[in-house]
């Protein structure tokens, strides 16, 4: 066990865990933040996507020790009130069905939008390719990302 310090959703956080423990389980089991989901444990489905220093990362293969000193954002920290353009657009397009993969989809989409304010369909394909949705909400996800880009433009 070792103390690992990082910034979680804007606040300093210290956890006493096995250094090799994946961030996914630190978030879910140690900290009780269950918005980040377990889907495959092998970076194959994207359900556990969080931001590490602003970039999308698969929490299931990201060890606790590797995020020491870094800034982590989870779905709970994306906004305090579902006001992030991606969340607004997700609500307006009524994207989720079962909803289980959506935290990962939203975090991936938010990272895309931060980097590319007007993503093309090809940009969306490339960024979201690694996020599986078994319910098949892809058409709504695409529409919602375009809508979020429009919301983002309007806010500027």
């Amino acid at each position: 066990m070792a103390a690992v310090k990082f910034i979680l959703n804007g606040k300093p956080q210290t956890v006493d865990v096995e250094p090799r423990m994946p961030l996914l389980w630190v978030l879910r089991d140690t900290l009780g933040m269950t918005g980040t989901k377990f889907g495959c444990g092998a970076a194959l489905c994207g359900a556990c996507t969080v931001h590490v220093d602003g970039r999308p990362a698969r929490a299931c293969i990201t060890t606790a020790q590797s995020v020491a000193g870094k800034k982590i954002t989870t779905i709970e920290g994306l906004s305090a009130d579902r006001s992030h353009p991606i969340q607004q657009a997700w609500i307006e397009e009524d994207v989720p069905q079962c909803g289980y993969c959506q935290s990962g989809q939203i975090m991936t989409a938010a990272a895309l939008l931060a980097k590319t304010s007007h993503p093309s369909d090809a940009d969306i394909d490339e960024a979201l390719h690694g996020n599986i949705c078994r319910c098949g909400t892809y058409q709504q996800i695409r529409a919602a990302i375009h809508r979020a880009a429009a919301i983002g433009r309007g806010a500027k």
């Binding site: 918005g35 709970e76 579902r82 609500i91 009524d94 909803g99």
Partner: peptide
């Protein structure tokens, strides 16, 4: 169920 499925709650 949509709002609770976009903020992890």
């Amino acid at each position: 169920d949509t709002p609770s499925k976009v903020d992890g709650s």
